[in-house]
């Protein structure tokens, strides 16, 4: 491959990967339990995508192709060395990937809406989200940090997420009614 073509291919692939990485991460997180296993799998998927990029048909959605690779890696992960049973069967993994591709249409708008919704959160809720996602604390650690119980932290986080999801839905619905479908 000439230097120029190789550089073009690499750029195309990097662009595709940047757009798909978050949904691929979310897909793996929904199918695999531990944080470290999720990171390992993401890197395996990234490597496979890079190695097999010449097999990718540009006429088809990149995310669907990347998720197909992720699905195979997840199945391998569960089958290697007698792990616990898969949370999602092979058929469900397929359905989950289809759902992820459908959600991709609205993913960037939902992400932007989330930023606005986060601004409106009360300080205490925002601090809880910060501890959970930005400082990477687990439920027990958050409970210790805020002098509460893990059960109470779980309930609070659940309510915050519900509030954020509802806020995002409202914003998207209002965008659609104001500007028409994007």
């Amino acid at each position: 491959m000439s230097d120029h073509r190789e550089s073009e291919t690499r750029e195309r692939m990097a662009r595709h990967w940047l757009a798909a990485e978050q949904p691929v991460r979310a897909y793996i997180a929904g199918a695999v339990r531990s944080f470290s296993d999720r990171e390992d799998l993401l890197q395996q998927v990234a490597l496979t995508v890079a190695r097999r990029f010449d097999e990718y048909d540009e006429q088809r959605p990149f995310l669907a192709w990347a998720l197909w690779i992720a699905k195979s890696r997840i199945i391998d992960h569960y089958r290697a060395g007698g792990r616990r049973p898969q949370l999602l069967s092979d058929t469900l993994l397929e359905r989950y990937a289809e759902s992820m591709v459908r959600h991709q249409e609205t993913f960037s708008r939902r992400r932007e809406a989330l930023e606005d919704c986060l601004e409106r959160l009360p300080e205490r809720s925002r601090s809880m989200i910060q501890r959970r996602y930005h400082e990477g604390l687990n439920i027990e650690q958050i409970a210790a940090a805020v002098r509460s119980t893990p059960a109470s932290v779980r309930v609070t986080l659940f309510r915050i997420r519900e509030a954020l999801a509802a806020c995002i839905d409202r914003k998207l619905a209002s965008d659609v009614s104001k500007w028409g479908p994007k």
Binding site: A26, Y27, Y96, R132, I168
Partner: peptide
């Protein structure tokens, strides 16, 4: 599950 996984990821 898909929607929620995306929310966690976006957060």
């Amino acid at each position: 599950l898909c929607e929620r996984a995306l929310l966690h990821q976006a957060l």
